[in-house]
């Protein structure tokens, strides 16, 4: 909101004259934006409101109405009692699995991709660009074409169904975009710096650890944001490469909500949905501009 100061507005005379806040065009503009905002905010509002109501109130009332009596029971139930099949230990198990998948996946994918990007930007070798091009094209290939060969590979190394197998899959599929991110960043580092370090006798790893990493901290944060939200939100790989005991949270959530047995408890379902969405939402609201930078980095492919 820095641009609301009159001096800034006076410096940049774009579009209409500043200070005419209540012109017809402005009313139309804000009206549209507020209307659209409602469409975007409605689901979040409905989820929160529903998750705080009791079932009798949901059956009688209006899904847009605020809860008459706030209850946190649905949240407790979603976390520790909701059933998938015969297991009734709630989403906490999926949460645990997701965390155990998330941490090694994020670390591994970022370490590997940053080294890749560094090698591609500063230590080009014969064929390096070819491999990189294949990697980037690979990001566009539908995952479905690679699903089954990966099943075979994971079976061969004995990781099928385990958390580590899924970690490997996330590392592989995170690689194109992260490598691109790091490669572009390292390529923008002034070459003189790199040359000076080489003249001083620094080798591959020394330059990486002592010069590149300290300079690239912001891009590491961007990569972490990108990976945490991406891996946490994954459903496809989770449902294929893990078994019920190691299902990540998204898969378990879907199984809880879309299970056909029993009475539908919409408040518990919405609490469970919110619980699953909480981690990426916190990341999103906490990271602000960096999140935008992360997705913008994802946008400039090629």
């Amino acid at each position: 909101m820095a641009d609301s100061s009159p001096s800034a507005a006076a410096l940049e005379p774009r579009g209409r004259k500043p200070k005419k806040t209540f012109s017809r065009a402005n009313i139309f503009l804000y009206g549209t934006l507020i209307m659209v905002s409602m469409y975007y905010l409605l689901p979040l509002y409905v989820m929160v409101v529903t998750s705080l109501k009791g079932m009798p109130e949901i059956r009688m009332g209006n899904i847009f109405g605020p809860p008459m009596e706030i209850t946190f029971e649905p949240w407790v139930k979603a976390w520790s009692e909701a059933c998938t099949g015969i297991n009734c230990d709630g989403l906490s198990r999926g949460f645990g699995n997701s965390v155990r998948i998330l941490i090694p996946s994020v670390l591994m994918s970022i370490v590997i991709a940053s080294v890749n990007g560094y090698a591609l930007a500063n230590w080009k070798f014969k064929g390096s660009e070819v491999f990189f091009t294949i990697l980037i094209i690979g990001a566009f290939i539908p995952y479905q074409t690679m699903l089954y060969p990966i099943v075979i590979m994971l079976r061969e190394i004995g990781l099928m169904g385990s958390i580590w197998g899924l970690v490997l899959v996330h590392t592989v599929f995170g690689m194109p975009i992260l490598t691109l991110l790091f490669r572009n960043y390292f390529a923008s580092v002034p070459e003189e710096l790199f040359k000076a370090a080489r003249v001083d006798g620094a080798g591959f790893w020394q330059i990486y650890f002592q010069i590149m990493i300290p300079m690239a901290l912001p891009i590491f944060v961007v990569a972490i944001i990108l990976q945490v939200t991406g891996i946490w939100n994954d459903f496809l790989f989770g449902v294929i490469y893990t078994k019920p005991a190691t299902y990540p949270m998204t898969v378990q959530l879907n199984n809880i909500v879309n299970s056909v047995q029993g009475i539908k408890e919409y408040n518990v379902n919405m609490a469970a949905t919110l619980l699953t969405g909480l981690v990426p939402l916190i990341i999103y609201f906490a990271s602000g501009k960096l999140f935008v930078r992360g997705i913008a980095a994802g946008a400039v492919k090629g």
Binding site: V36, S37, Y40, P43, L44, V46, M47, T229, W232, N233, D234, F235, T250, L253, N254, V257, N269, M270, T273, T276, G277, P280, L281, I283, Y284, F285, F291, V292, I295
Partner: peptide
């Protein structure tokens, strides 16, 4: 406008 993008398709679909 951007926050739904942080959410997974599963959460989106269920909501």
């Amino acid at each position: 406008f951007l926050y739904p993008f942080a959410l997974s398709f599963v959460v989106t679909g269920l909501a």
